[in-house]
Design a protein around this nucleic acid. Structure first.
Lengths: 335, 335
DNA sequence: ATGAAAGCGCTAACAT
DNA sequence: ATGTTAGCGCTTTCAT
C-alpha cells in the first residue's frame, strides 16, 4: 500500500462518489458533510495513501502557508542550537514547518537568506537580534507577515520582540565584580570584526566600570568564533600584555572555562589570584571544580515563547509586542 | 521602493511590453530573448522589487522544487549542529532551501516529520542513520526523490549513504586500549532506551574485547542525553558499583571530559589509575591538561559531502551510492 | 450537505 | 526571439 504523490483530491472523490470539495472539507475538518461521507472519505484516503499537496494549498489566492522561516547566527552553538531545538519542537507541535538559515553575524547574509525565504511566501519569520540591513527591514515590511526578533530585546520591534538586554547583562556582571572588590579588569571576547551581542555585553560591562570611575585595563577580542580554545589562548594573549589584572570577564562560559584551563596550566589560582566570570549558563560549567560566576539564559523558554508568540500573531490572537525573558546572575566561586 | 509579494511576472511583462514567458525566460537565465529585452526586464524587476513566487514555480506539473528536507536527532548537539551548519551552507550555496526536523533518536518521530515534509514535495531528503520505520521506508520510496543517509554508513542504502561505521570506531578503540595493556574495562553511555549510534560503538568495543577473550566488566548507560554532566555522574555511578576498572570508554568526548572531572575530584589519576577514551573529537577536549584519546569525526566534511551528493543526484549527475568518510583514532595521554 | 466554476503564478510545449 | 495555451491541485465563492 504505497502512498503516492500522484493521487489527488480528485481521485479520492471519484472513488467515493463525491466531489473533491467534499473530500477537501473532510480532510480539513471543516463542516459540510455527513458522518457517513466522512468515514468513507477517510477510509479511501487511508487506503490509497493520499498525501496532501501543501504546495497547491499554499498557492491559491488567500492561501494560508504553514511555513515559518528561522534564521540564527550559527547552528553549531550550544545556545542557539538549543533555542532552535525548542523553536522547532514548538512550531512542529502547532502544525508548522521550519525553514532555516544562518548568517554568522553578518546582516547581509541574513538579507540574502530572507530574499530566498520570501519567495516561499512564509506565514511568519523568526530572527535573532535587532540588527538588520535596511533592505531586510523593507522586505520584512512588504512581506506583511508576523516577525519575531528574539534574544536581544528590541523595545521598538519591527513586530514582536522577545529576550533580554545584553548590555544590561554585562552591566550587572560589572557591578557584581566591583561589589566583590575587584579593581583591575580584563575582557576576552570573540568575532572581532562582527557586531555581536557579546559586544553589547562588553559595553554594558564597561559602563558599569565607568560608573565606578574605572575602565577596562585590557581587552583581547579574537577574530575566531567563541569557544573553549579561543578562551584558552585569548587569555594567554591578554595576560602576556597586561599582567596586573585581578579579574577577567569573558564573552561566554565556554571561553571562561577555556581561560581557566590556561590559568590552571600556569599555576594561576582562581579566584585568589584572578577572578573569572562568564555568560550563558552553558553545560560545560557543570563539571568545573569551582562553580563559575555567570549569567544563565533560559534558551528553551526563549525558543518556546518566541514560537508561541509568532503562532499567536499568525492566528490573529492578541500578542504583546515586547516580552522580557529574565536572565539570572549566578554568583559562583570564581570571582 | 518596496518589494512586493503582489507583483507577478504579468506586471513586469506589461510594463516592459513583452509577454510573461519572456520575463520568465530572462529571470531563469535560459535563452530566447535579446540582450536589450533582458536589460529592460531586469531593470523593471529591480524597479518594482519583484519577488519570484517559488510556490507557484514548484507547483505546476514537472515543476522542480528547490526544497530539501534535513532531519537529525538533535540540533543541540555540537556534532550534529556543525554538520547541519555545513549542510545548510552547502545547500544554500547551490541554490536550495532547507526544511528541518529532529527526532531525538525516535524513528517514529522521523516518520511523522517525513509525512509533513512529503506534503511540500521536496527535491531531496537527508537523514541521519539507517534505522527507519517501515512506513518511513515506503514513503521515501514513493517520494521518488534522492535520499541521503549520513553519519552511520549503510552499505545497502535506500539511495545514497555517506559516513562511517560506528561499530568499527568502537572496535578500533577497544583494540587500541587493549594494545596499551588495559584489561578491565568499563563503559559509560547515554540514552539507554533509544537505539543510538553510540550503542553501535559500544557493541564494536565489546566485540574487540571478546576477540581478546575478555568482556566489559561494568557498564552504566544513563537515560539522559550525552553531555558533560552525564559523564560526570555516570562515572560516579559506574565506579560505585565496580571499583577495579583500569579504563573507561565513553559515549563521546564530552562525557569522557565530564568523567575525568569526577575522577579528578576524587583524586583518581588519569591515565595512571585509570585510562579514559572518548569519541567525536569535540572542541572541549582542546583545553584539557592531557590530550584525550579519542576518534575524531570530520563533521564539516560529512555535511558538505552529504549535501553535494544529494545535489549531484538531484541534478541527475552520476553519484556513487556509498561514500566512506574516514574517522581518525587519535592516541592521547589519557589511556 | 454537496457541487461547479474560477483562479492562484508559473513554466513546458507548442506556435509564430 | 517572442507569444499563446494549457494546466499543475487545491480552496474560495457561489450555487443547489
Amino acid at each position: 500500500m504505497g502512498r503516492s504523490t500522484k493521487t489527488g483530491l480528485e481521485d479520492i472523490a471519484r472513488a467515493v462518489g463525491v466531489s473533491k470539495m467534499t473530500v477537501s472539507r473532510v480532510l480539513r475538518g471543516s463542516s459540510g458533510f455527513s458522518e457517513e461521507t466522512r468515514e468513507r472519505v477517510l477510509s479511501e484516503v487511508e487506503k490509497r495513501g493520499y498525501l496532501p499537496n501543501r504546495i497547491a494549498a499554499a498557492f491559491g489566492a488567500g492561501a494560508t502557508s504553514t511555513l515559518v522561516g528561522v534564521c540564527v547566527p550559527r547552528f553549531a552553538s550550544s545556545l542557539f542550537g538549543s533555542t532552535l531545538e525548542s523553536i522547532n519542537a514548538t512550531l512542529t507541535r502547532l502544525g508548522y514547518q521550519t525553514m532555516i538559515g544562518s548568517h554568522d553575524q553578518m546582516p547581509e547574509e541574513e538579507e540574502v537568506w530572507l530574499k530566498g525565504l520570501a519567495s516561499w511566501r512564509p506565514a511568519g519569520v523568526i530572527l535573532v537580534g535587532r540588527r538588520h540591513t535596511s533592505d531586510t527591514l523593507s522586505l520584512l515590511r512588504d512581506l506583511t507577515v508576523p516577525i519575531v526578533e528574539m534574544w536581544d530585546l528590541n523595545t521598538q520591534p519591527i513586530d514582536v520582540s522577545i529576550g533580554f538586554s545584553h548590555f544590561d547583562d554585562g552591566y550587572r556582571m560589572g557591578k557584581y565584580l566591583l561589589s566583590r572588590g575587584r579593581e583591575k579588569f580584563g575582557y576576552v571576547g570573540a568575532m572581532a570584526n562582527r557586531t555581536t551581542m557579546g559586544r553589547n555585553r562588553c559595553e554594558g560591562f564597561e559602563a558599569a566600570l565607568q560608573d565606578a570611575g574605572t575602565a577596562l585595563a585590557a581587552r583581547e577580542i579574537l577574530e575566531d568564533h567563541p569557544g573553549f580554545y579561543a578562551g584558552y589562548y585569548g587569555t594567554e594573549t591578554l595576560l602576556s600584555r597586561e599582567q596586573k589584572l585581578d579579574s577577567i570577564y569573558y564573552h561566554d562560559d565556554e571561553m571562561a572555562i577555556g581561560g581557566m584551563a590556561w590559568l590552571a596550566s600556569q599555576g594561576v589560582r582562581v579566584p585568589d589570584d584572578i577572578g573569572v566570570a562568564g555568560w550563558g549558563g552553558m553545560e560545560a560549567a557543570s563539571i568545573q571544580p569551582r562553580r563559575l560566576t555567570t549569567i544563565t539564559v533560559p534558551t528553551t523558554l526563549i525558543g518556546k515563547t518566541a514560537a508561541e508568540l509568532l503562532v499567536g500573531r499568525m492566528r490573529g490572537e492578541p500578542v504583546r509586542d515586547v516580552t522580557v525573558i529574565p536572565t539570572h546572575l549566578v554568583p559562583g566561586e570564581t570571582g
